[in-house]
Design a binder for these strands. Structure first.
Lengths: 272, 272
DNA sequence: ACAAAAACGAGAGCAGTGCTCTTGCGTGCG
DNA sequence: CGCACGCAAGAGCACTGCTCTCGTTTTTGT
């Protein structure tokens, strides 16, 4: 039904995509402020009024671009996470996940301390990989980054449609910490938390169905926001006369963020 | 000279201020995107073309507003710092700047441990006061905040005029940590830093004429960026379905940031 | 298969914008 | 006092988002 009925619908979705592509091009060239519906239509060889059949207003086009940017950033983060996932996966999945073959798995003769250290190292690597993937995407698409993490463009209300896509990189980060916590290799912070913050953390944990101590979740949210603080400062020019070694500084800050949520580098043989 | 010659110049600066005020009003009402020169002129009862005698372009008006916002935020931060400065200061100087004056306290009668604890507590209080002052200002002027810490509005180049004002809150934070370091109550982080980051930190320290270990300075920059990450997420709606207890969460995150730069709460009688 | 209905494209047009140019008018300085 | 400069006003250009109308095409119901 929906497959064959295409004909027209396919043309519609094709044109919709063409419009978004052209809009993205203008976005990358001049920024969101200069994005003009008429210019898009002109470039596509159609009347400007025809464009309103696909996007009822300029803001709707922008929100479509916002959603796309969120998901693009989300998949970049998830790809980075999966690329650094545990090598000895379940045999059922045929995903091309096999960086190390079977070499690392099940070596019981070695102390499990070593396995723990390796798992902790992997968690830390995943964390950093996600962060640098986000940064790489942001550096490659600065205007799209500005669109989603800069000043809200329209009135200022983000439709709820965007929230799902917007959460993906946050969820990726949470996932890493959740797995680390489940594996018991998380150094939980022991600090007093305000009750309201605990309540928020509990509510969020319940909503996301993730079991993490409130303190960890709270720090996770903070790290999530702070990650984008670093990125925004770098992209928006706040580091201009301050930080020159951007990549090194970012990596440094990010690994420190990892530490703040309890992901500790195994380092020099800590526990017996 | 410049005082009396006014007459005409005074009128000019008055009108300039009126324009900026009206522009600020529209900015607060609708955001930077909707700020219209014609609307400002209309509201001021003058022809739109007359406005170009005062600001050669819309972007120039915006940059003027940006500079003003930076300095307003900067004075808010500095005021918060000074309000929590050392109470028993020398009566002569009104400026709270006293880098090495008494060299960390002469109170010999009481255990100097207590004086140290009090000084450390004051440093921490100053840090938090600056951060919450920044947040309060941002919450009171969300659109102006978006103007300076959101997506860059024009092409994207920030004129060097703004950098001075932009640095003020960062400098306030650095000042607190510098004083704490001079007083010897800073827990320096002992972590390996990439050479490039060390070079940046040294260069920055030399440029600002502040003596701080590179690791502390690097963390300071990170904390500075992360502070605005927290603020941007709160203001731009990223916390909407995530964090409800905004103030408590912010305070919590900020005190943690303080800890990351070495400002430790005296807390329960740590050192002898 | 044919007609009704819906979707579509193009054009004209409105209100608004940033910005430039030209034209008068008033004040301030030599 | 007179000249010149700073100033305000208006007209105008090119552009924008958006609406409305009017043919044309495609889909759909009978």
């Amino acid at each position: 039904m929906t497959a064959i009925r295409g004909a027209r619908e396919r043309a519609r979705s094709e044109i919709t995509e063409a419009i978004k592509d052209e809009a993205r091009k203008q976005l990358a060239a001049e920024g969101a402020a200069k994005l003009s519906l008429r210019a898009v239509a002109r470039e596509l060889g159609m009347a400007s009024s025809a464009l309103y059949r696909y996007f009822p207003s300029r803001d709707d086009l922008l929100t479509a671009l916002i959603v796309d940017a969120y998901t693009a950033l989300g998949v970049a983060a998830e790809r980075a996470r999966d690329a650094n996932a545990e090598p000895p996966a379940a045999p059922g999945t045929t995903t091309s996940r096999r960086p190390e073959g079977g070499s690392t798995g099940r070596s019981e003769k070695a102390g499990r301390g070593e396995a723990r250290a390796r798992a902790a190292e992997r968690a830390l690597a995943q964390w950093c990989a996600i962060c640098t993937a986000v940064r790489d995407w942001a550096l490659a698409h600065p205007h799209e980054y500005a669109l989603i993490y800069g000043s809200p463009v329209p009135g200022y209300h983000a439709p709820h449609i965007t929230t799902e896509s917007a959460a993906r990189v946050g969820l990726a980060l949470i996932g890493v910490v959740r797995d680390a916590h489940a594996a018991g290799l998380l150094k939980e912070p022991a600090e007093p938390l305000p009750d309201a913050v605990v309540a928020d953390a509990l509510a969020l944990g319940a909503e996301l169905d993730v079991e993490l101590p409130p303190a960890v979740l709270a720090r996770l949210i903070g790290a999530w926001a702070q990650l984008f603080g670093l990125l925004s400062f770098e992209l928006f020019g706040q580091f201009n006369r301050v930080v020159e070694a951007r990549s090194a500084f970012f990596e440094q800050a990010v690994s420190q963020l990892a530490g703040s949520v309890g992901l500790v580098a195994p380092g020099p043989r800590t526990s017996t």
